[in-house]
């Protein structure tokens, strides 16, 4: 198999690759990336022609906290040095209403951000209304993404996407935050969403069950035109869709990403060398979190708390799934672990 093989079949259906390595990857390293790390990867991604680079704390603007983890760098530092490193790639940020506020959006706009994504739990799109309206007034490109999307039916996701477009989103998408999907699940959902809106549709995969690349291809085949992927899959738990695998796979299937393969592989090598102690892997606990349908970002906290309380982290994940915990509810981990240990420390005694 030579490089020309993939070039020969490269098609002309454009797909926009959106790279949140420097945002979602933060979940894997307790939000600890420093200035040199951000700069090195941003320069490499820019050189490869990655169209959009997203940066920030793992939960987005304003999210540095004990609940999820405190970031080494402030939003200001992350935005200004990434902005400087990017010449061709667009700079994107992510914000969860209830975590970040309009002041955080104003700050990002002051840093000349090109694209803002507003995320909400998949059934809470109304929380995005005010922020999408604000961004529209400001003339900033605003997309909306639905988190933990396996918790809603294709029809519900389509309805929420249609509302997000009414609120002002110029792109809508879903995240498989728990890495729970199989390709047919993705096909059903993206098909329903594409039928409900006339803006670009996005898919963001997680690799808990080893399905992230296959799921992303299924999304493209069902009509998604924006795909998220991270270098070496850098991200929470088993990681996200692996960028440098997804891009050549898409090209072989017949899509055009506009990304230079060798430079992309170089960028992925930079990421492995500079950003992470080791690339994410589909380890036992990540499989459990995918099966349980729990946000992969809970992994480090679940392991910490389970070790401290002497309980099986797999039980903690299944119990969090039973309680339908959503992204952001990390405070439940302690309660679940204490309950499993069978010794509550509340005042009910």
């Amino acid at each position: 198999m030579t490089e020309t093989t993939s070039r020969d079949v490269a098609g002309d259906k454009p797909i926009q690759i959106h790279d949140p390595t420097l945002r979602d990857g933060h979940h894997a390293v307790r939000h600890s990336l420093g200035a040199d790390q951000l700069r090195a990867y941003a320069l490499a991604a820019d050189a490869a022609g990655v169209p959009v680079v997203e940066v920030g704390h793992g939960n987005g603007l304003g999210a540095s906290s004990l609940q999820v983890g405190r970031a080494r760098l402030s939003d200001d530092e992350m935005l200004s040095l990434t902005r400087q490193a990017l010449t061709n790639s667009k700079l994107a940020v992510f914000m969860l209403p209830g975590w970040g506020t309009i002041d955080d959006l104003k700050n990002a706009i002051a840093h000349d951000v090109d694209l803002v994504r507003i995320g909400t739990h998949c059934t809470e799109s109304s929380l995005a209304e005010r922020y999408l309206g604000f961004l529209r007034e400001q003339g900033v490109e605003a997309h909306a993404v639905l988190l933990m999307s396996h918790m809603a039916t294709p029809g519900k996701l389509a309805e929420h996407c249609a509302r997000l477009v009414e609120f002002g989103a110029t792109g809508v998408g879903i995240m498989d935050s728990a890495g729970h999907y199989l390709p047919t699940d993705v096909t059903e959902r993206i098909t329903a969403m594409c039928g409900a809106v006339d803006v670009p549709v996005m898919f963001h995969g997680h690799n808990n069950l080893g399905m992230a690349v296959a799921n992303s291809v299924a999304a493209a085949e069902a009509g998604a035109s924006i795909l998220d992927a991270c270098a070496r899959g850098f991200g929470a738990g088993a990681g996200n869709t692996q960028l440098e695998a997804l891009v050549p796979v898409l090209e072989r299937v017949g899509y055009r990403t506009g990304i230079d393969l060798y430079r992309l592989l170089d960028a992925a090598d930079v990421a492995e060398r500079d950003l992470m102690p080791a690339p994410p892997k589909v380890d036992s606990i990540s499989i459990v979190s995918g099966l349980a349908g729990v946000f992969s970002g809970f992994k480090t906290r679940v392991l910490d708390v389970s070790a401290r309380e002497g309980v099986d982290p797999r039980d903690v994940f299944f119990e969090l799934g039973r309680r339908q915990a959503v992204a952001g509810q990390e405070d439940l981990i302690v309660d679940v672990a204490l309950a499993l240990r069978g010794a509550g420390t509340g005042d009910r005694s």
Partner: peptide, 29 residues
């Protein structure tokens, strides 16, 4: 000080909950 708000879609609905984390050298259970 930092305040954060989560909205839970769980069914049956989750009971209203406020989790407080504090940093302070002399804190004990």
């Amino acid at each position: 000080v930092k305040a954060i708000l989560n909205i839970s879609p769980a069914r049956p609905p989750a009971t209203f909950r406020v989790a407080m984390s504090l940093l302070g050298k002399d804190l004990t259970t």
